[in-house]
């Protein structure tokens, strides 16, 4: 079964090492882009702080992993796996994301 990809925004809307938030199939999703134009998507919900804020955290190279530090209480979430490195039980979902023809797409 092939996935259906939905356009979210222009690639040019992203600024390196920062995030944006998308509304997709009723869920809030945080999309990040790194130095090498690689994109990542995890839930926007921060279970530690109980608010939808992860897209607004600082992208951080933490113990060799590319993470986002929550803007509320600074826990690190692995951008690739969604794992919360300080409190693993508070890990978050990841989502398939890609860049296609100048657009950022979620499946």
């Amino acid at each position: 079964m092939s996935e259906v990809w939905t356009d979210i925004c222009q690639f040019s809307d992203l600024v390196k090492n920062t995030g944006v938030c998308a509304l997709h199939k009723g869920e809030q999703i945080a999309i990040f882009i790194d130095d090498e134009s690689q994109v990542y998507a995890i839930s926007n919900y921060d279970p530690c702080g109980n608010a939808y804020v992860l897209s607004r955290g600082i992208v951080s190279d933490y113990k060799g992993k590319l993470t986002v530090a929550s803007p509320l209480y600074k826990q690190h979430f692995d951008l690739t796996t969604g794992e919360c490195l300080e409190e693993p039980k508070n890990s978050v979902k990841t989502f398939p994301v890609r860049i296609e023809a100048g657009k950022v797409q979620l499946a």
């Binding site: 608010a51 607004r56 803007p71 509320l72």
Partner: peptide, 22 residues
Amino acid sequence: ADEHLQLQDTNDVFLANMQKDG
């Protein structure tokens, strides 16, 4: 500016203080 944006805490990015509910 684009080259400085990634350095700033959310408070500086949005020029306001984030509260507990975002």
